[in-house]
Design a binder for these strands. Structure first.
Lengths: 231, 231
DNA sequence: CAAAAATGTGAACGATCGTTCATAATAACC
DNA sequence: GGTTATTATGAACGATCGTTCACATTTTTG
């Protein structure tokens, strides 16, 4: 993952594949005590299982989704599912851990490469938009189904949320500090950016109905921030 | 409900009481065929039932909430609950219908009283913030639990969402038309306003942790829109 | 290709779910 | 205050849930 990856959504998607494989393998090794099949077999079938959990979970809710639903949708028997995950809750945990790992890794891979805070801000926004476009089912799932996690995992989830907001916050602070940004509340500014990014994956139907593309949306955010942040 | 109601959250809350009673009674009359007790009895006990559904639903999800949970939390027997609602789904429908009725009524009561589009916009924002503060449990519930409704009700829910966004959209359009606003995309501007309002009730913990009050938040939105919309 | 290892199968189990209903308790009425 | 109308109760029922496990099938190995 490098600055060229972010030249288009397609390029970004391509460059993600390697990271996905790595993270999936790491996940399997971490949960080895709960997985009864070999790494190779798990690597092959877990993606389908994850995809199905997200699809069914997003359409009828995770707790309303039965293992029989998942079994039918994946063409795996009930017993087979239990060789890839030790329980229904475990399935949830793995789906979350997998996506969180990819996303956090992706953020770290880019960092803040530019001198200009504004450019760094725009880059982070683009990355976030791309990620939420590609993993939209998970972003939506994570938002609406966090309540089914344990208290510890809910805390972790909120922390991760704050961490990414802190990322925007820091960039904005540095812009205010070097006088390239107006003196706004960086708390509010960061929250605003996050809420705009959120709207994109929480209400996709709104934007697709209006024929607003990802690039359009990205551009509008840029226009807004230009007027709001730059003197 | 009039312009004085919006002078403070407390005043707003007071003025809502009458509307709440009216709408609850209308709801009961509408669902009379599914309610086995007298209007008077229903009027007395439904609010507790609604509150409990929202509380439990928001903490563990609606489909993971059993009628035995609700029974325990309300000190009503299983049988008693079935004299106020004919099924679990009905409970959900009534909670939704009740709150939607109040909120839509509230919006209609105010309309667009000012000549200046900017003033009308600020008023609508304040009303929305007040409503989402008072009925936060429902706003959150409606957002995360829509998927448990029937397809018809989901369509209705999205329509209601779009309707309220259209309200902001129209105000912004009129501002652009009379040259008091800059020439932005009113689609994006309206979506931005909505997503900011959403963040307030979807992530309340974020703002309370930072000691940001409702009035603070309202003011920040005003500052943003001043820079973004006004020439 | 036969033996061994790995993976897949789905009937069966106990728990819990939404819902009903015969009956008890309470309130309303004259 | 006795009678009727209204509301409350919770054991019981069938359906469905997550999970297990004895066994069948497939793949790998030597």
């Amino acid at each position: 993952m490098n600055l060229e990856s972010v030249s288009s959504l397609e390029q970004f998607k391509l460059d993600l594949v390697k990271l996905e494989q790595e993270q999936l393998l790491m996940l399997i090794e971490k949960h080895q005590n709960l997985i009864k099949v070999s790494n190779k077999t798990a690597l092959k079938k877990l993606p389908l299982l994850f995809e199905t959990v997200l699809n069914l979970g997003n359409s009828k809710g995770f707790s309303a989704t039965s293992l029989r639903d998942i079994s039918q949708a994946t063409d795996m028997s009930l017993g087979a599912i239990y060789t890839y995950a030790s329980s229904k809750e475990d399935l949830l945990l793995m789906v979350n851990a997998y996506h969180i790992a990819i996303i956090e890794n992706c953020y770290e891979a880019f960092g803040k490469p530019y001198d200009s805070p504004f450019d760094n801000l725009l880059l982070s926004i683009k990355i976030h938009l791309y990620l939420s476009q590609i993993y939209r089912p998970w972003f939506y799932f994570a938002f609406t189904e966090t309540k089914h996690l344990s208290k510890k995992n809910i805390r972790q989830s909120k922390a991760s949320e704050l961490k990414s907001e802190q990322f925007f916050h820091n960039i904005i602070e540095s812009g205010i500090h070097d006088k390239s940004f107006r003196e706004h509340s960086s708390d509010f500014s960061a929250a605003m950016v996050k809420s705009l990014l959120q709207d994109w994956y929480l209400k996709p139907w709104k934007y697709s109905n209006r024929g607003i593309s990802l690039e359009d949306y990205n551009l509008e955010i840029k226009r807004l921030l230009t007027l709001y942040l730059l003197p």
